[in-house]
């Protein structure tokens, strides 16, 4: 599945200082869809190069990291259960840096 991932608010520093990543994420064997939960564990394994604790806590994002799926707050779409589709844009923004 082709997805565009964008990291902001300092999170880009955890993945080679690159803000926008066009990625191809395979749906796991035996699953019929890709959820945000799957995507987060994929991101953690494949994109985050340092200090993963700045991005994740447990199986979800660290509190203070905002997530938008197609420019919509993931709190409205079911957070980890949000299912993703081809060409979706997922944005992660940390609120934890400076003011």
């Amino acid at each position: 599945m082709q997805l565009t991932l964008e990291f902001g608010g300092g999170l880009e520093l955890l993945c080679d200082s690159k803000k926008i990543h066009n990625v191809n994420v395979e749906i796991q064997n035996g699953e019929d869809k890709l959820t945000m939960k799957d995507l987060l564990s994929w991101v953690r394994t494949n994109l985050i190069k340092e200090r993963p604790e700045m991005f994740m806590k447990g199986d979800t994002v660290r509190p203070g990291v905002l997530v938008l799926v197609n420019d919509c707050d993931w709190e409205l779409s079911g957070q980890l259960n949000t299912s993703l589709e081809e060409k979706d844009v997922v944005v992660f923004i940390s609120t934890l840096h400076g003011g």
Partner: peptide, 28 residues
Amino acid sequence: EQERERNGRLCCLCSGRAALRRPKTLQQ
């Protein structure tokens, strides 16, 4: 079906497509 599930939430003021949930009031 999923599309509706993902994007079907409506703004509680104008019924447009909701973009966020406010932490202060939980309004979408």
